[in-house]
Amino acid sequence: MDKARLTDALGPLALIAIGIAFAAGAWLNLDLGTLRRLGPGALPLGLGLILATLGAIALVQGLLQHAEQVPRPDLHALAAVGVAIATFAVLTERLGLLPAVFGTVLAMTTVIGDVPWLGRLTLALGVAISVWAVFLLGLRLPIRAFGAG
């Protein structure tokens, strides 16, 4: 089995795993009830099994048909967006909303080429000020601008 086919099979395999996980969780931890009075576990069990079955069919379909190349992920973009959102979550808690917004914008600009550092800092500052004006002053969201909570 070549590498492209193997990578392509990972998607359906993940579906099978998720389906089995939900079905097993429902079977082990939740009350299935009776046909007349279905319990909280009945639907997840059924749906989990259906999902696993559909995953299996998709797997077989993928193996029988010509393999479609899974495109290479844009790791740089992935990392930048991941770091940007993580920055927002971490900094809002530790330093307040505006530093978090500043950090998020800065993290996002690292993936977009040919912008000088001064431009990036200006953009980050501008967005932070706009967020303060619109969301904190204007809409009065009860979020601290600076400081840990």
């Binding site: 967006v81 940007a84 959102i85 993580a86 927002f88 979550a89 809002t92 808690e93 909303l97 978090a100 917004v101 998020t104 914008v105 996002m108 600009t109 977009i112 912008v115 431009g119 953009l123 980050a124 967005v127 967020v131 969301f135 969201l141 009860p142 979020i143």
Partner: peptide, 26 residues
Amino acid sequence: AMLYPIVAVLICLGVYSLRLNLFDVW
């Protein structure tokens, strides 16, 4: 270069402002 950083901030802020819960952002 201007658009996507702003969109990212709006996404984070939108999610966070609902319940003021950072778990939602993660």
